[in-house]
Nucleic acid binder design. Sequence first.
DNA 1: AGTATGCAAATAAGG
DNA 2: TCCTTATTTGCATAC
Length: 254
Amino acid sequence: MAQVIGTLPWVVAPPGLSVAPPAPPGLQVTAVTPQLLLNAQGQVQPIQPAPAGPGPSPTAVAKAPPAASSCPEPPTVSQLGAKPPAPPGTEEDGINLEEIREFAKNFKLRRLSLGLTQTQVGQALTATEGPAYSQSAICRFEKLDITPKSAQKLKPVLEKWLREAEQRQREGQQHLLEFVGGEPGKKRKRRTSFTPQALEALNAHFERNALPTGAEITRIAQELRYEREVVRVWFCNRRQTLKNTSKLNVFHVP
DNA sequence: AGTATGCAAATAAGG
DNA sequence: TCCTTATTTGCATAC
């Protein structure tokens, strides 16, 4: 059977490594994130020409699609619980929902006892070997706003971390939020944030050709200064989004 | 300040 | 290798 943690080739990016931007002036390194301090990833971000307005106004993102958000979303744990017959022993695809619910509740309680925020837990998990999760993930887990499958995957990770965190507290609370363990670095690649300029360019390319060849993707990537893979995936996702939205519109003619 | 959440990157799985 | 489809997950920001 498939196992918990997937096997990702993405190497963990040790925080605090210096980027070597071969890029021209006006280089931008990943949008500043308030929640996570570590950026690393050593990814060269896109150049940022002259936007438009010299004004200091920060807000300038353009909303393209009107958004018809109602895709076939998978049911979350909490939703499943609201089903008619949901007596003791609720199970979904071999997953004990009750147990997960209980742990989620418990987890939150114990997290609070440790005096930690979701953000801190997320950071701790990120610093850890093994899978990393964000504040969002912790939040969703506690609320059970995730699929049973995801919850099942998260549970052991949180369980282990919590146990060790409590133990560390018990002993000298030396190193607050860190712990070693788990396998070698297997972490999800950090999510790329495209600049509005880059998105504009990407969309322009997409309009001309939604299915660029490998060579074209390479060119675009170089032009925009993003990893080729990132650009390739962008096109895949863009196609998917387009397909999904138009599919919806067929049945929803306003 | 923490937490919740919308949109969309990133990933998994089957060609 | 890279596509599609389905899904997981996180950045950014709203609350």
